[in-house]
Simulated scan of single mutants.
Amino acid sequence: MAAGNANDHRRTTGTQPLEEAIAGGAVRHIDLLRIRTGHGEDAAAEYAHSYIGFGLTPVMAIDLEKGSKGALKEMLSVMRTFSKFKPFQIRQSDGRHRKFDSLVFANIAEMAKYATLSEADDKLADGQFEVITFPHRPKWRVLLTALRTTTQGLGDQPSVSSYRFTTLKPIPYQIDGEVKSVDHKTPVTIECAAAALATLG
């Protein structure tokens, strides 16, 4: 049932009202995202139903939590945060260092009510997830891309079953609606937990 950070997921994936789904009793299994941070046996695992985001996503969320509520105050808070935002750098599994403004791993096509991340359509049980990257660029270009997500969407995005990198500095990340952080020089693995969740509707 949609509640808290499950609202985006329900809005984009629900097929019928909950009471009808319960009465019908048709169960389907959907994929989850799993993030592991750390080495081997010590790697902590967490699950997300919608998305895991690094860069702008958690930074904006942190600032909104600190700020006052209300549409105008939230907009001013986002603008203030964006003006001070700095990109982050990671070491990918091939050894290359890459700098990003945003890196999002998505199990659904939309987030935050208005942003269309990909053209993924009914891919909740395909064993893969979409990778949406904003390589570091001037802020005006980031704003244009963000505007595009709210108007026409970002179009097709690459789909993978796993993605690995190592942090170079401590960085925050957002897992569904919850903001957490990962330490420097920490291996991070995002993978698809195929058909992990039984659901109705």
Results as ranks from 00 to 15, higher is better:
M1W: 12
A3Y: 12
A3N: 12
N5E: 13
D8M: 01
D8T: 04
D8N: 09
D8A: 07
H9M: 11
R10S: 15
R10N: 14
R11P: 01
G14N: 08
T15K: 13
E19R: 14
E19D: 15
E19Q: 13
E19F: 15
E20Y: 11
A21G: 08
A21W: 07
A21C: 08
A21P: 04
A21D: 04
A23M: 10
G25T: 07
G25L: 11
G25D: 07
V27N: 09
L32D: 02
L33I: 02
R34H: 09
R34F: 07
I35E: 05
I35K: 08
G38Q: 06
A43W: 02
A48P: 01
I52C: 05
G53Y: 03
T57M: 15
I62P: 00
I62Y: 05
I62V: 15
I62H: 10
I62N: 09
G70T: 04
L76E: 15
R80H: 14
F85P: 00
S93M: 10
G95E: 07
R96V: 11
H97Q: 14
F100H: 06
S102R: 05
L103S: 05
V104D: 03
A106F: 04
A106H: 01
N107S: 07
I108L: 08
E110M: 13
M111H: 08
K113I: 09
Y114L: 12
Y114P: 00
D122G: 11
D122I: 06
K123T: 13
G127P: 02
F129K: 00
E130W: 00
I132K: 00
F134P: 00
F134N: 01
P135L: 06
H136E: 13
P138A: 05
W140H: 14
V142A: 05
L143R: 08
T149E: 00
T149L: 03
G153W: 01
G155E: 03
S159N: 12
Y163E: 04
Y163L: 04
L168M: 14
K169Y: 12
I171H: 01
I171K: 02
Y173M: 04
Q174M: 13
I175N: 10
G177T: 02
S181G: 11
V182M: 10
H184Q: 13
T186L: 11
T186Y: 09
V188A: 06
A194R: 11
A194V: 08
A195S: 12
A196F: 10
T199P: 01
T199W: 03
L200G: 00
L200F: 04
L200T: 00
G201F: 03
